[in-house]
Simulated assay, not measured.
Amino acid sequence: MTTVATVTEDTESPYALSHLDALESEAVHIFREVAGEFENPVILFSGGKDSIVMLHLARKAFAPAAVPFSLLHVDTGHNFPEVIDYRDRTVARHGLRLHVASVQDYIDRGVLKERPDGTRNPLQTLPLTEKIQSEKFDAVFGGGRRDEEKARAKERVFSLRDEFSQWDPRRQRPELWNLYNGRHAPGEHVRVFPLSNWTELDVWQYIAREHIELPEIYFAHEREVFKRNGMWLTAGEWGGPEEGEVVEKRLVRYRTVGDMSCTGAVDSDADTIEKVITEIAASRLTERGATRADDKLSEAAMEDRKREGYF
């Protein structure tokens, strides 16, 4: 008679990393790897929750020294005031250098034109890519996660961009055993995604564990909104509401933050981190799928923008 031995995992081991510890460790490793491989990296920072967590991880990776990277924000001009205020306070608090690529500057110069729908998210690509080229950034950290959207699910942690900042899915490099290939030709650069393997729930649980401050719009608050294409949008100079769209005051919060013209709020009474975590755990829609109109322009809207140089 053959005896089969079974091996059980000792989940109580003091040496076992928790799920969040493992994600944190991976992200810290990625930041340090980039610092060792590249000459002039930059962190995309919008004041949204993913970029906030990303900056928190970068600070952990190099503590007690300062973060050795500057920040970059592509400003659409249609940002939520609460988020811009948070961005500026964070930069001042940590003594960071902030580069701003302004969509409004490109519109004023006639290089870009306003879209009929008022959204400026698709207009971010040119300011972003030209700022990368002018500042000679060779690695650009983004807060994209694979669970957000199907095009982002295709992307590696180190994602090569050609000299025109374009993405070719066929040039994806294998990343076996968490070995990252940062080689690139002159003029090319690499987009780096330390949060690739995180989910929205992971991000919120980490925010709770680390006591990370967020802009208040991520929590339930009363706000004047109007409905368009099934989403609650905030009125603003970008062109809403239109005739027939009724503004009403509702208790809402934002799951993601972007251009006001295409970022919808959700009905919610979640005014604490604990309530937000409970709400997200029960949700069956990603935050972009539920609240980002720019991703609904076509089935391949995100992938098309990524091929052109967007994140």
Rank of each mutant, 00 (worst) to 15 (best):
M260V: 11
K113D: 12
G187D: 01
L195A: 03
G258C: 02
T129N: 09
L44G: 09
A65G: 08
W177N: 14
E149M: 04
G110L: 05
G118K: 06
F69R: 04
L123S: 06
A220S: 14
W238E: 03
A92T: 02
A282Y: 04
S51A: 13
D75V: 10
A101N: 08
E114F: 07
K131T: 15
T291E: 00
H189L: 04
K131G: 07
E149W: 01
V28R: 02
V257P: 02
R183V: 09
S268I: 09
H29I: 10
R89H: 12
R173P: 01
S13H: 06
G36R: 09
W238H: 07
D10A: 08
I280T: 00
S18Q: 13
D168W: 08
L128H: 07
Y218S: 01
F31D: 06
G240V: 14
C262N: 14
G244M: 11
T6C: 11
E274A: 15
K136C: 10
D271N: 13
D202H: 13
E33R: 15
K154H: 08
T11Q: 05
V28F: 02
M54I: 04
R284N: 13
R97H: 15
D117P: 01
Y206S: 05
R191I: 10
P116K: 10
E175G: 07
P194M: 05
P241D: 14
G118T: 07
A16P: 08
V225Y: 09
I30Q: 01
F137M: 01
D108R: 04
I52V: 06
H56Q: 12
Y106M: 00
